[in-house]
Design a binder for these strands. Sequence first.
DNA 1: GCCAACCCGATAGGATTTGTCAACTATACC
DNA 2: GGTATAGTTGACAAATCCTATCGGGTTGGC
Lengths: 147, 147
Amino acid sequence: MAMISQKAKYALRALIALARAPQSEPLVISDIARVHRIPKKFLEQILLDLKRQGLLTSKRGKGGGYVLLRPADKITYGEVLRIVDGPIAPLPCLSITAYRKCADCLDETNCETRQVFAHVADATRKVLDQTTIADAVAMPRHELLAS
Amino acid sequence: MAMISQKAKYALRALIALARAPQSEPLVISDIARVHRIPKKFLEQILLDLKRQGLLTSKRGKGGGYVLLRPADKITYGEVLRIVDGPIAPLPCLSITAYRKCADCLDETNCETRQVFAHVADATRKVLDQTTIADAVAMPRHELLAS
DNA sequence: GCCAACCCGATAGGATTTGTCAACTATACC
DNA sequence: GGTATAGTTGACAAATCCTATCGGGTTGGC
Ligand code: FES
Ligand code: FES
C-alpha cells in the first residue's frame, strides 16, 4: 500500500536544500534541480505549490530564487506531505484535515477496518507531525568509506 | 499520501466475515459479496489471491465455499495487506519483504527522507503486524441508537 | 531593452486501480 | 450420466492518478 509519491520526495529534498542554504540566500530552481537530480519543470510546480501554501517565498529576475519563509524547525514533514500528497490518513473517514465518509461502509462507528487503521494513522501522524526539516538537516552524515 | 486500497478493504472485510462464520462453515462468494457490498467478480480475484497465499481454502460445487485455513488470531493485518497491496513500507528502499534501491537517491545511507520514513514504517508495522483478524472480530459493537 | 528567473495552463504517456466478461473445471446430488 | 452449483482462469475496459514536459507569460534587475 501506501507508497509516498515521487513528488513528495522531491519537495522534501528541495526544502532541505533550501534550509541548508546559508543565510536564507535565495536558491534558483535550476540549481536545485541540477544538484539534486529533480526534473526542473516538475520542481517548478512543486515549489509553486509550497509557495502558495506559505512555506516559501520567491523573488523573480536576476539574483532571484526561493527562500524558506519560516525557520526549518517550524516546518513539519506532515505539513509538507499534506500539501503535495494530500491527506495523510490511510482512509478518507480518518482524515482530520479532509474527512469524507467512506462510500462503501454504512456503519462507520462499527467499522473494524476504521478502528484498526485509526491506530495506524495515529502512529504515522505522531512521527510526521513531530519531525521537521531542521531534524533532517541535522541528521548525521556518514562518511562513504572509499576503498 | 498512503491511501489503503479498496481491494484491501474488501479483503479484510471478507476475512472478518469468514472468521465470524460458525464452525468454519464454508461461505460462498455470492453471499459474502451480497451481504458486505463487495462487487462479486472483484471479490473472486481477491479470495483467489488469499487462497494462493495459503490463508484460505475452498471447496467447489454445491455446499462449497471458502474457509479460513488458520485460526483468526494467526492472521495479521500486515500479512493481508502485503498480499493485496504489496509492500507496506512507504519507500522501496525501506521494504523488508521487497527491498529495491531508490532510483533517484544515490547515497542511501545519508538519505534524510529514508531515515525519517524508516520511523514511519516501523510505527506502521508495529500496529499492522500485531493486529489480527481475531482482534477485529472481537471489537466492541456499538448499538445504533434508533430513536 | 534584455536577460534571468519565476509563473501559469495545458497536455501527454504511462501506470495503477477498480471492476467486468466469457468461458472453463471440479463437485454434489439425483 | 446429467444438471446445477460454485470456484478458476485470463483477458480486458474504464477511470483515475502520477510523472513529466511544453510553450509561453510576467516580473525584476541592470
Ligand atoms: S468507515 Fe471508513 S473504512 Fe469503514
Ligand atoms: S534512498 Fe530511498 S528515499 Fe532516499
